[in-house]
């Protein structure tokens, strides 16, 4: 199966323009990174009604946030984008974020536990309304069927008497996709838990160079299994600095963050590298420092070349993010139980 491309940038100068340009270039998804600027979920929601095919994926923290609020916000994004919302899980190590909510900064063990707990709480809340819970039954005067609503009854136990609980049900009906795709960096995912690969829909894989990245993709594929066997999608992370406007990348390359694999060179050569990565990965997340110069190059050169090679999945207006990932719409855990009872 062919792969997908996700674009990522901190560039929030002209959100409307950026989103439309990314969609018309043929990107399958757009990541909205967390940071000092505008709220990522809000940026994604703003883009929702402006676009028709591209997945909108905000980064949202799991450590210093309320899972109940996060689940409602992400479900709302899914409604505002008609099923194109996703979640890139973050486990913040920001001491200021900790101080702002009056908590000590979490160590690595705790951050992994928090991430796993929040993902589970969100998933339970999204399933707390069965799809047909709104019945509008005039005869009995009932708008809802309470039997099709369920408590989440989630408990997180971090040891040493630490933890929390979330009662539910959600205050918003089940999102259009049923469950929003959950993406997590490989550092948070492990075969020993607490966040197991089968609990996420995609794992973001980064490495110090393209060669190491390829090796890592191969290793994780073996460990986590192929997609058809229920393994998560693997997404390779690649920072890019392109030659543009007649200037070589080294001079257009401004502060490109991160210490992951990076590509510097022409838009044509990038197509080769991406195609190569897509032999091992289901998708590639391209991080560009400034889209003003890079997006036109990607749109005019890299993506058309990749399409010609037939390595990109088709995108169509009205598809959901789950469609893009090749995931069906999941049955609700409670509907399954009800079916088993009957």
């Amino acid at each position: 199966m062919s792969g997908f491309l996700i674009l990522d940038t901190d560039d929030a100068k002209d959100l409307k323009h950026l989103t439309l340009a990314a969609e018309s270039a043929g990107f399958h998804g757009l990541v909205f990174p967390a940071g000092e600027g505008l709220d990522p979920v809000q940026r994604a929601a703003f883009a929702g009604p402006q676009t028709h095919a591209i997945a909108l994926i905000p980064e949202v923290d799991t450590v210093y946030t309320e899972p109940f609020h996060v689940a409602t916000q992400l479900a709302t994004l899914d409604y505002a984008s008609r099923g194109r919302g996703g979640w890139l899980v973050v486990a913040s190590d920001d001491a200021r974020a900790a101080a702002a909510v009056g908590r000590p900064a979490a160590d690595e063990r705790r951050r992994r536990l928090e991430a796993a707990a929040s993902v589970e709480a969100n998933r339970r809340l999204w399933d707390s309304w069965e799809d047909d819970a709104v019945i509008k039954d005039v005869a009995s005067g009932r708008y809802l069927d309470a039997d099709r609503l369920h408590y989440a009854d989630f408990r997180a136990d971090f040891g040493d008497g630490e933890g929390y609980s979330v009662k539910g049900p959600s205050i918003i009906p089940r999102p259009p996709q049923g469950q929003l795709p959950v993406l997590a960096p490989s550092a948070l995912v492990s075969l020993d838990g607490p966040l197991w690969p089968e609990e996420v829909d995609a794992v973001l894989v980064s490495a110090s160079s393209v060669d190491v990245l390829r090796a890592e993709l191969g290793r994780l594929r073996e460990a986590y299994g192929f997609r058809q066997d229920g393994g998560p999608a693997l997404v390779a992370e690649l920072s890019v600095a392109l030659d543009a406007r007649g200037l070589p990348a080294s001079t257009t390359d401004t502060a490109l963050g991160g210490d992951g694999a990076r590509f510097t060179g022409s838009a044509e050569a990038l197509a080769g590298v991406v195609a190569h990565l897509l032999e091992l990965a289901d998708g590639v997340r391209l991080r560009a420092s400034s889209l003003v110069t890079e997006l036109p190059e990607l749109a005019a050169v890299t993506l058309p070349l990749l399409r010609e090679r037939g390595v990109l999945r088709p995108l169509r207006a009205g598809n959901t993010f789950r469609d893009i990932l090749g995931l069906g719409r999941p049955a609700n855990r409670h509907t399954l139980t009800a079916g088993a009872r009957a």
């Binding site: 979920v41 883009a47 929702g48 109940f68 609020h69 916000q73 409604y79 309304w129 708008y143 049900p169």
Partner: peptide, 30 residues
């Protein structure tokens, strides 16, 4: 921030199910 209940069950008779206010307003801003 909690779905309304009636006699210990989710209240069935009135409309219910609301979006997160700021997320919805961000979408409407566009």
């Amino acid at each position: 921030l909690r779905l309304r209940e009636h006699l210990g069950r989710v209240h069935e008779l009135d409309v219910a199910g609301r979006p997160d206010a700021q997320t919805m307003l961000a979408a409407l801003a566009g």
